[in-house]
Amino acid sequence: MSDFLKGGLSSAPSASVDMAAKKQAIMDQVKNEIAMANAQELINVGNDRCYDKCITKPSTSLSSSDETCLSRCMERYMEAFNIVSRTYIARVTRERQNATGSSAEFL
């Protein structure tokens, strides 16, 4: 009886393990691509904003002060992203707790 059960069960797991692995692979890939797109967006916009701020008069090459400004600016842009993210998520959470319905609109 126990042998029969074991035999009966052992064929199913290998198929479902295969399935679970495929499912996990899809989820991982989706998450990776989203993370990648996010990073790209952040870098692209940071690039624009920091170019505007730091390179006011383009010359024949980037000076070391241009480079200092650019790296500080990128660091600050990412910090700003984190501050905004924290604030927004806190607000959305608060609105959801406070009221139901209309105030969740801006999600």
């Binding site: 967006e41 500080r72 842009y77 700003a80």
Partner: peptide
């Protein structure tokens, strides 16, 4: 939305030169 706010608020709030 966070990306949009970051850019909008950066333009509004970070008007001087950037520091550390």
């Amino acid at each position: 939305s966070v990306h949009k706010f970051t850019e909008q608020c950066w333009n509004k709030c970070i008007t001087g030169s950037v520091s550390t």
